[in-house]
Design a protein around this nucleic acid. Sequence first.
DNA 1: GTTTATTTAGTGC
DNA 2: CTCCGACGCATTCGG
DNA 3: CCGAATGCGTCGGAGGCACTAAATAAAC
Length: 876
Amino acid sequence: MPNQGNLANWLQKPKTTKASAPEAAKPDAQSSSPKAVPTPPASSQSPALSPKPSTEKAAPEGAPQGMFDKQLRPTRKRSQPSEAKQSPIASSPRTSDSEEASPALPQRKRTRLGARASGRPKAKAKIIVDSASSSDESFVLGAPSPAHSDGGNGSSELSDTLEKSPKDKPSEDSSPAILGTSAAELAAKLTAADTAPIKAKGKKATKKAKKAKGAKSAAQKAPDPSYTTPDEVLTTFAELITDTVPYAALCYMFEQVEATTKRLLILDMLTQFFYRVITHAPQDLLHCVYLCINRLAPQYEGVELGVGESLLIKAVAEATGRNATKVKSDLAKLGDIGLVAKESRSNQRTVAFAMTAKHFGSSASRQLKVGYVFKTLKQIATTSGHASMKLKVDRIKGLLAGCQNSEAKYLMRSLEGKLRIGLAEQTVLAALAHAFVHHRSEPLPEDLEDRVQVLQEAAATVKSVYNELPNYDKIVPTLLDQGLDILPQVCKLTAGIPVKPMLAHPTKAISEVLDRFEGHTFTCEYKYDGERAQIHRLETGETMIFSRNAEDMTAKYPDVVDKINRAVQSTTQSFILDCEAVAWDRVQDKILPFQVLSTRKRKDVKESEITVQVCIFAFDLLFLNGQSLLRTPLEDRQKILGDAFQRVQGDFEFAKAVRTSEVEEIQTFLDESIHDNCEGLMVKMLDGDEASYEPSKRSRNWLKVKKDYIMGLGDSLDLVVVGAYLGRGKRTGVYGGYLLACYNPDNEHYETICKIGTGFSEVDLASHRDLLQESIIAQPRSYYEFSDAANKPDVWFDPKMVWEVKAADLSISPVYKAAVGRVDSTKGISLRFPRFIRIRDDKSPEDATNSDQVADMYHGQKINAVKANDGSDDDY
DNA sequence: GTTTATTTAGTGC
DNA sequence: CTCCGACGCATTCGG
DNA sequence: CCGAATGCGTCGGAGGCACTAAATAAAC
């Protein structure tokens, strides 16, 4: 409120937005390099480092394999700013090195190089970023190699390099094909590895590869620096990670990752990081993995931080001695609590230090270790009960106090639950796989193409293992103790542990389905509107139920156990069923809306007190009597499913399905499903390789067709924009969402109906901000009906803009005001899955969808007719 | 001190 | 849940 | 035959509503 004015201004120009935020961020990373980034400031962080690192670090440690690196000693951190640019370096050093490297497995070599280089020049800037500051350059493999190796064109890029370099490749292309694609680059990388290996990724490379080989040498030489972790980064990892992993090392890696958008580079950096951890501090690998994916335990264990934005604001405020209001306004400006914390800290050093002393004791080292951070986060998660919030805040403050540089930023983001650095689970799995490939004793194949393939297969293996047993507590130790090769034998599908469910791709029209499945046999089944339920029966006879996100829902559905028992055939012992649990009206034998299902209690549910009955609609079987069916084609799985279970009217049903390839029939079936209160259809491939169950994959083998996806169908409304919310993260500087209202002609009021935050392109976001700039008003109009507590926007607008919005359904809302009194005496109507479609220039606010129309649309959803009888209303 | 209302976090879609 | 955008890979098009 | 353009799938990250549960704050 107070600052609306400011906000307004602030928003005005496109601005800064990015400038500010981003810059802030990145800079540190690299530019800062000079400053402190990595190993930072000598002073503080280094304390630890400097001492031991150098010498022994590696050596002493018995780190596995250390072969290569050992030597690496830290050249010292590159902290020295000075050298930064100056080092011309590139040329000289690298050249030499490069040669070594380029050839086959340069990896090892690189290390040395690096080492020697100690003096190292710095060379390359990081890739992405422009090199601006960073100085590194040096030998990164990429760069160098090309040049030298081939000798051919050396690209001079060293300096510039960066992304552009890719282009250069052509030049050399002796092996054009390869180069062109990533394959080449991969190759390049290979060469480089340092301590770690490099990775590469091109899948298809294979074909080309051959040619490449021919030209092999040539090909390899031409590496593309872009996807190879810069030596500077490698060196920093080596310096920071000795026998244990400092949180600073992890954060340094995060910074490097955040500074780029290239996926392959991110993957490589993470691979290098993990490799270093595996070889020098394997006991910390699990912690690092968890911190990278921002989780504390397997999902099904239900360990949650229980920390949200308000607690974080409080923690930051207290830790830095500022007041919460100020922190909030900074948050609005920066769009990231992590940045706020970081900025605050730098301005409040003394306070921070004071805190440090208080929480860590003087003796405590100032350097946070990942193990400690992880442990503390877990403590925060398990804290509960009276005054637990204060305790959590204190713990957060304690951690914050020990943070230096960017650590505070990432710590806050971890607490917030989103790292937002462009790296998430899939990347972690692939990097883990790659790191272990490099770590295992057998050498990588010499042939580039083969290497790529080995890496890809490893990634696929790890991902698949994880999907079948989503538990890093088991996977990571297994990898460390027994290696990649036997991982699949040790970690496999188990009844009692949730499998990542297979997902479906949205489809915009039936014709799209036909295009995709032409020539294949497929089945169409109802898409029920309930909750995904993966029902397990263990060997012990125990039954467990997991949600779509692998959450243990067993306690929520005690009644389902009995239903299942009545549906199992005598020969059926252990199994994993894939189903949808749907709210069911036993009196009328009808499906009830999702909103009804969601009112079921979740904990301590006693069978006798259940108010909302459920019917299970089974549609797949993943495991039966100790046997995995994941690779069995759907057609067979369905058959087995049908044999192993029997229908129990109203309690356990098989999803209604039809096999047809006729457009008309599909259309009819779709209409029918909608009529039966379902969301639409699921269309699945029945046979062939593509018909296996692919956990977690949103493959094209399962498609979903919902009425609202289809043009012209679904609920579309024209609503008035009355307010907006400041964007966060990548929406910093524009509005992240808007508050919409419908028009009530009776009293000429605007009644809020929903917020909207998706469907906008980036251009839309910017133009909407500009277009609405003039409509900003300091206070809401008296004729706006909204819920003060809940949807108060950051900025209010006069009613001018009208947008077409699409939604899947209309719902009774506890907070929105649309059509109040028409459907429910006190509650309004809102929209389910609202998204922006387009601006309606042709409509004035008074022409927007009105309250009666909203009420009619709500009643028009036949499912609600059912609802009407339960209750609150009388309309019918 | 208990009971009730409000706020926050987490999960579903 | 919906949607967008960037990347990487593959295929196609134009010279 | 090659580089440019186009198409497709993956991954990550913006954002939505409703509801329960837990903790705090407010009332009695």
